[in-house]
Design a protein around this nucleic acid. Structure first.
Length: 987
DNA sequence: AACCGCTCT
DNA sequence: TTGGGAGAGCGGTTA
């Protein structure tokens, strides 16, 4: 018989919605009215892709019914552990139903059954007619059991992974089984945590595969359980019924009373007006094109090619500076071109264009006048753009003449985008492989840099004047990396910076700022992935140096091109949200500062650490032995699971021991501290934890991170991760070096000056967050205390406990300190009670007392929340935003979290703003004064310097002054500055 | 990869 | 009764 002429697609709506929701988890799409449309968008994307690529003749969308199903009757616990549906999904589902309806696609739903039963039943019936080829569109692996010659699974494409069709062969391979019927046996044995189907304990995918290969089915396995041995046998015997039940639950029912109405499923015209209205409401502009809702007349026509003319001639209007006198000039220059003589030189043109912001100005000279600036493709009815589908011209620049021409040309631009290709991720260890440049959409140039150091230097030197030209803005993604690379080649990049990663960080602080993702989100463009060039991580991964240069041209050119386009996208967004000044005056200058800090690095006393390591090692062994003796057995103390069993099952230390949300015993510091009185093992475990932590995380790890090139440790500061505006530090994290305990202090002592002539100087803000809180709230008591140098915790204690300042006991002060911190974080009475280990009632009373004494603080906190509710975000003194999308949520936990953020984010973030400004000014001051001292670290409210002994006094004075005045406020800022032979004594 | 636990401000 | 101050990164275990 001929192949069936009809193609039926059956969509598992909820599964697709879930997948879409989580795929966009980090970069949700939000409409201007605050509706999260990620799930809707993802679902539509997947559906439209199928319609376009697969051209089904028939289609249906199945939903689960909200009522309980027959499975719940079989097994009451079915899906019992499932978390309540995320709010965004609940909100999205009705929209999706409406969209499906508007597309005139039938919705398949039936009380008492789940989508898979409905899909299964219809699939089988469609096949029985012999006229259909059926595809079940779902990411759910359970559907494997339905596959046959006529029925397939269609796994939708998501986030870079291509769509996949699975037939009998693929499904059997996926499970490692011989026959499709065995899918339910596999599911029965393994179970499903998501649906709370138990399976048989101790059997995972691997074991199940072996057992099914050997026994064929669950029933047969149980009948032959005596052939098994050990724990496995026990489990199979004991949980036989559970296994059979699980298999039943996993079995999709094919007798759902739904009619198979082929005509109803036939794909027809959309209800265009309704669909248009929906797309408008959801702000899905691109979708309208893909749905064919825009009339063709509305589509911009592809702009005609501009004939090669002025632009191209501009390029070589002035004689290129260096090139030898070869006649064979690059890029199609025709000697004797008429316009040459009249064209102004690049330098004059730049002056004329100096007020223009972007390099894409219509009259800017063009290096290649091949493509116009406008988007080339129309966007309608097309999948996401890729390097193959978008017209571009990325060129290799690999001769002295070409390099000189390019450099000369770039020197006439007001802004250039560049990107460096290197041999490694770590900029301190990496070497340059090439540089890519772009100045307008659709074009880029790739300059390979030779492996030989001297030759490489010569190539870099050609571009050095351009890169160091203060009049040319430098655009890039994560520019700090490129700056660090270039510093190693003697290039000090100058001029304004525009870092697309950080621009996006300001626009959407909590999302991802990865270039590929931003390209997909903002440009609807899917870049070539780095893996396509160098392969996956691990064995066989190439370095950029080993990749064919033709491939790099495309990849690197694309990076520069895309980055430039992102800059053009983000600049107006920054302006719109009043973030441009923060970006241009704070974040961009800070990039240079951080690059210098990182490059400088900090010296570590390895001998001291080695000694410490040996001491810790003997101590760990000692404590470990003592714990084993107290426990009566040896076990892995590092395993919370094993430790919990020893403490609570074996030693029965606490009858109602707390469990974590995953069902294990909680063995955290707080719990063990409580147990200290009961059993000495608790103290020992805490000791053990401290020792092993210090040893593994710091003492043994830090020396390995010393750069062989410099002999120092170079952390990496991340300027685009913390949602509040703080910096973070990785590889290693130098913002969490111990200081609290005596042993921890030994580690801090190992951070030492670079040489005899230097000392460590540490300068920190005193109570920066509380001072900001006082200033923002205008609270008189607090402001006066700070301005008159009264200890703030004592002041708070005096007020809350109604005693004179002189009568405050250390216990009262301690409590007040906890309260003060709690206030900044938006504390609850429960939280305070917990921390102070006092009854909740008492804590509530203290808070009430506090608010009575500090009414302005209370008002300020309420106002912060109110403001966030109105705006949808909280903001810092410099206008840095943090979006609080849950501030109006009906979910209490989510909403309260957002409210705490509304209070904390402006305070923590403004402190970060202040320190950043101080850093920029100090950096500037040190350069102006040509100091030998170096700023080397920043830790939220602290700056650390490698200070030259001769400069100590002036450095101290200048740093102090700058820090105190970085952002003037109604409350004066105070600093503490210390100097010493190591970081511990300096702090 | 997720979780736990611990380090810092 | 649950869930209940903020922001980070890293090492270890378990699955």
């Amino acid at each position: 018989m001929a192949k069936p002429q009809n193609k039926l697609f059956l969509l598992d709506a909820l599964a697709l919605i879930y997948r879409a929701h989580f795929a966009f988890n980090k970069n949700p799409r939000i409409t201007s009215r605050g509706l999260n449309t990620s799930a809707i968008f993802g679902f539509m994307n997947a559906m439209l892709e199928v319609l376009q690529k697969e051209k089904p003749t028939h289609i249906g969308v199945a939903f689960d019914h909200s009522k309980k199903t027959f499975r719940h009757e079989q097994f009451p616990m079915y899906k019992a552990t499932r978390q309540s549906q995320p709010e965004d999904i609940s909100v999205a589902t009705p929209y999706i139903k409406q969209i499906v309806e508007a597309m005139n696609i039938p919705i398949l739903i039936m009380e008492g059954f789940e989508a898979d039963d409905i899909i299964g039943t219809i699939a089988k019936r469609a096949c029985a007619t012999g006229e259909f080829e059926v595809y079940m569109m779902t990411p759910d692996k359970d559907y494997g059991q339905l596959v046959d010659e006529c029925i397939h699974i269609y796994k939708p494409a998501f986030m870079g992974k291509a769509a996949e069709k699975q037939g009998v062969k693929e499904v059997c391979e996926r499970w490692g089984i011989e026959r499709i019927e065995q899918v339910t046996d596999m599911l029965g044995l393994i179970g499903d945590a998501v649906d709370n189907i138990p399976g048989i304990p101790g059997i995972g995918e691997k074991t199940a595969q072996k057992l099914i290969t050997e026994f064929g089915s669950v029933e047969n396995l149980i009948a032959n359980a005596d052939q098994l041995k050990g724990k496995l046998k026990e489990n199979v015997v004991q949980y036989a019924d559970q296994g059979l039940l699980s298999k039943q639950l996993a079995t999709i029912h094919l007798d759902v009373p739904v009619p198979f109405d082929a005509e109803a499923l036939r794909l027809t015209e959309y209800d265009k007006p309704r669909l248009t209205a929906l797309m408008d409401e959801l702000e899905f502009r691109q979708m309208k094109g893909r749905l064919g809702l825009d009339s063709p007349a509305d589509q911009p026509l592809p702009p005609a090619f501009k004939a090669a003319g002025n632009g191209q001639m501009d390029l070589f209007a002035a004689p290129a500076p260096a090139p030898s006198g070869t006649a064979d000039l690059p890029f199609g220059f025709e000697p004797g071109d008429a316009a040459v003589a009249d064209t102004p030189t690049p330098k004059t043109r730049k002056k004329a264009a100096a007020t223009e912001a972007t390099p894409t100005d219509a009259d800017a000279p063009a290096f290649l006048d091949v493509y116009p600036d406008a988007e080339i493709e129309t966007g309608a009815s097309k999948p996401r753009k890729t390097i193959q589908s978008v017209r571009h011209d990325y060129r290799l620049v690999d001769t002295p003449e070409l390099r000189a021409s390019l450099a000369y040309f770039l020197s006439s631009q007001t802004a250039i985008c560049f990107d460096s290709e290197t041999t490694a991720i770590d900029p301190v260890e990496a070497d340059l492989v090439g540089l890519a440049f772009a100045y307008r959409t659709g074009e880029a140039f790739y300059v390979p840099v030779p492996a030989d150091r001297a030759e490489a230097q010569a190539v870099v030197d050609v571009f050095k004047p351009v890169l160091q030209d203060p009049a040319i803005t430098k655009i890039g993604q994560n520019l700090k990396y490129d700056l660090l690379m270039l510093k190693k080649y003697g290039v000090e990049v100058q001029g304004k910076l525009f870092d697309t990663m950080i621009a996006h960080y300001l626009i959407e602080p909590e999302q991802r700022h990865n270039m590929d993702i931003m390209a997909m989100t903002y440009l609807d463009y899917h870049p070539v992935e780095i893996e396509a060039l160098i392969g996956k991580k691990g064995k066989g991964q190439l370095t950029m140096r080993e990749v064919d240069v033709e491939k790099i041209v495309e990849y690197a050119g694309e990076d520069a091109d895309i980055t430039l386009q992102l800059k053009q996208t983000f600049e107006p967004l920054l302006e719109k949200d009043n973030l441009f000044k923060l970006f241009d005056q704070v974040e961009m200058p800070l990039v240079q500062v951080l690059a210098d800090l990182e490059l400088e690095g900090i010296r570590i006393d390895t001998n001291a650490l080695a000694e410490l390591s040996a001491t810790l090692d003997t101590d760990v062994k000692q404590v470990q032995q003592e714990i084993y003796e107290l426990a009566g057995e040896s076990f892995n103390i590092g395993s919370p699971k094993q430790l919990g069993e020893v403490l609570f099952d074996k030693l029965k230390l606490d009858k109602n021991a707390k469990k974590t949300r995953t069902g294990q015993y909680a063995t955290g510091e707080e719990i063990l501290s409580k147990l200290e009185a009961e059993h000495e093992i608790a103290r020992k475990i805490l000791d053990y934890r401290e020792l092993i932590k210090l040893k593994n995380t710091y003492v043994d790890a830090l020396p390995l991170l010393i750069s062989p090139r410099t002999g120092r440790i170079h952390t990496s500061f991340n300027q685009a991760v913390a949602a509040t505006g703080r910096l973070s530090s990785t590889n290693p994290n130098l913002q969490n070096i111990p200081i609290r305990t005596p042993r921890g202090q030994e580690i801090r002592k190992a951070f030492v000056p670079r040489s005899e002539e230097f000392l460590i100087m540490s300068a920190d803000y005193s109570q920066i967050e509380l001072r900001i809180m006082a200033a923002f709230s205008g609270d008189e008591t607090m402001t006066n205390a700070f301005n008159n140098n009264i200890d703030i915790h004592t002041q708070t204690a005096s007020k809350v406990f109604h005693v004179g300042l002189g009568e405050v006991t250390s216990e009262m002060r301690r409590k007040a300190k906890t309260i003060n911190f709690g206030i900044i974080y938006g504390i609850s009475s429960f939280g305070l009670a917990q921390r102070l280990k006092i009854p909740r009632k008492e804590a509530a009373q203290i808070i009430e007392e506090y608010f009575a004494e500090f009414p302005a603080v209370k008002a300020y906190m309420e106002q912060s929340v109110e403001k966030a509710r109105g705006f949808g975000y909280a903001e810092t003194i410099l206008g840095r935003r943090r979006y609080l999308r849950d501030i109006n949520s009906r979910n209490v936990t989510d909403r309260m979290f957002a409210e705490r953020n509304a209070i904390n984010a402006p305070i923590q973030g403004s402190a970060a703003d202040m320190l950043k400004i101080a850093m920029i000014q100090i950096h500037d001051m040190m350069r102006r004064e040509r100091m030998q001292s170096k700023m080397i670290l920043t830790v939220h409210d602290e700056l650390v310097f490698d200070a030259h002994r001769d400069e100590l006094d002036i450095l101290r004075e200048r740093v102090d002054h700058i820090m105190k005045n970085a952002i003037p406020m109604a409350v004066k800022m105070d600093t503490g500055i210390g100097v010493g032979e190591n970081w511990l004594v300096a702090h």
